[in-house]
């Protein structure tokens, strides 16, 4: 991506940092003249990806989550990475209502929400190495 601005933040996998990630990305996006709806879509998608990294990526381990945010004149690209467990079967994981932890009251809607609220979603993962989620949304700057 031929970017015109970029930011990166890194934080420990503590659930209290989910709000931090949303606020950081929303503030960065405020540099663009986006609609309230667009910012809310992005915040929701970021919340899903970061929560997954914290809940599934690390489970009971401790580790860092990285959120990278880039925009150019056409789109915003957000990358959320963890260096944890990884996903064995990405297709299965992305299926609506699939969850590996129903006992923790997860609904299996996270990836579906990211797909619905963003224009594209790419998931890269390798077991034992971690997971990276790349989301893009078209914007009119």
């Amino acid at each position: 991506m031929n970017y015109i601005n970029e930011m990166k933040i890194q934080f420990l996998n503590k659930s209290v940092n989910e709000g931090l990630a949303r606020v950081a990305v929303a503030s960065f996006c405020a540099q663009l003249d986006l609609t309230v709806e667009t910012v809310a879509d992005i915040k929701t998608a970021v919340s899903e990806a970061v929560t997954n990294a914290i809940v599934h990526g690390y489970e009971n381990m401790s580790g860092f989550v990285t959120v990278c945010c880039v925009y150019n004149l056409k789109e915003i690209e957000i990358t959320v990475s963890d260096y944890g467990r990884g996903i064995e079967d990405i297709d299965e994981a992305r299926r609506p209502l699939f969850t590996s932890s129903p006992d923790e009251e997860r609904s299996g809607m996270g990836f579906t929400v990211m797909e619905t609220f963003m224009d594209s979603l790419e998931v890269k993962s390798s077991v034992g190495m971690g997971t990276t989620v790349i989301m893009r949304k078209k914007v009119q700057v």
Partner: peptide, 13 residues
Amino acid sequence: LFMDSSGIGVIMG
């Protein structure tokens, strides 16, 4: 003011 799929989980539970 904001809710994600974790809220769905709370209702579901």
